[in-house]
Design a protein around this nucleic acid. Structure first.
Lengths: 234, 234
DNA sequence: CAAGTCTAAACTGTCGACAGTCGGCGATTA
DNA sequence: TAATCGCCGACTGTCGACAGTTTAGACTTG
């Protein structure tokens, strides 16, 4: 009778995770600009709107605070983070620093499978360009860079990337369309992959620098163009 | 799990910002090993011990979760994070990557004032060595490295450093004494400062690599020596 | 008409309560 | 004799309530 637990492949279900769900909804609203930068996040309001009590809303807010999407003012509540131009600089500075390293590590760990994943992801970028879907292209762009961090194999690095990305998403959601030529953006990923395949650390760093440096300047320019911030409601 | 949440010796607290205070107390208890890795953090128990309700305890726990000190198991509660040897590798890998960059930036921003701060911090390390106070020396060691991040001027980088440090503190609290010769550890900071003063990027990176690489190997060795983990008290 | 001043409404921080889940233990059954 | 069942207490997830604080707006006052 060596049958303790019959292993039937059933996916575990995680039903009520209110905190997580609230966090996701809030993030969505922020990224989509429905909660503009500087606006107050009224706990009771969100709670009522989502049909839950304030407790899970507060816990979700703490999460987003730690993630940098909200800032907490004691006794005054949570507010949607306002980004300044130098926030962009900070984020890209860190991204550059981390992604350089990630790419070098990724090259070291590269297998045929992971290489193909990167290749296919670039193809997806071309597809998005054809479909002219800027929002999804930005998302798929992140996915490419995230893949590099994933392949690098350092979970903390991956989390850091996700955190930075979620901050960037917010900014980019605000400035809307990012590039003029969506095919161009897909193309600029090619040399990065090529360098990783080649495996020369210097070349990898150089191409990452070039690629991200381009995005940095572009986003920086756009952010500076939209002076302070769009009417921080309330 | 017949446990009526045994007291961990947490003195009661008052005033406002309960969440922050609870978070600090919990961190303390974890770092000092009073809440050993793997142990369950019983909300009601902590709340009772600190003389507060469960709400602020939960919010503090979420904070520590995001910081990596706790892990949340839905419906089962929060548990003190258990570190494996490869966690050390991840943390030091990231630290190295970030601190290299920070040091180069710091060199660029160096002023006489900030230089003096670094100098004085090394002197403090010697003092701690004289006093033979390993715990405080480790703490002052962090402060030196933190100073570099501070001088670099990227707030996100600084926060990342703090997060990594708080994870490391936990590990180091567990392995106890870190180095045999506390004066040696103070001395090894000299070339780092010298390189930053000199301002040669390559030299800076080389010395940071050497310095942190040493710590990495040392901590890694010690962690591997203490095989699984000290009786994860339930 | 600008600058305070005061007051009521709106919110946050925290609490205690309650329903439902989890895990261990003894009883049960093959 | 060992796997399983069912029960019971401990604990989590969530809620509504309340006190104290902040804010917006009406009302004075110089």
């Amino acid at each position: 009778m060596r049958t303790i637990s019959p292993p039937v492949g059933l996916p575990a279900l995680n039903e009520t995770d209110l905190v997580g769900q609230v966090a996701r909804r809030l993030t969505e609203a922020i990224v989509q600009g429905r909660l503009p930068p500087g606006s107050k996040v009224v706990e009771a309001g969100i709670a009522r709107e989502l049909g839950v009590s304030r407790a899970p809303v507060r816990e979700a807010a703490r999460l987003l605070e730690q993630q940098g999407l909200l800032v907490a003012n004691p006794r005054r509540g949570f507010f949607v983070r306002q980004f300044a131009a130098d926030d962009i600089d900070e984020i890209y500075d860190l991204r550059l620093c981390v992604e350089r390293h990630a790419a070098v590590l990724a090259a070291r760990n590269l297998t045929p499978e992971t290489r193909d994943k990167l290749r296919r992801q670039i193809d997806v970028l071309y597809e998005m360009a054809d479909l002219d879907d800027p929002a999804r292209q930005v998302e798929e762009d992140y996915r490419f860079h995230r893949l590099i961090c994933e392949i690098a194999g350092n979970r903390r690095m991956l989390r850091l990337f996700d955190d930075l990305a979620s901050e960037l998403r917010m900014v980019i959601g605000l400035i809307g369309r990012l590039y003029d030529d969506p095919h161009e953006i897909a193309r600029t990923h090619e040399p990065v992959l090529a360098a990783i395949e080649a495996g020369h650390p210097e070349r990898i760093v150089a191409h990452i620098d070039y690629h991200l440096g381009h995005a940095w300047r572009e986003v920086g320019r756009l952010v500076r163009e939209i002076p302070p911030w769009p009417a921080a409601a309330k």
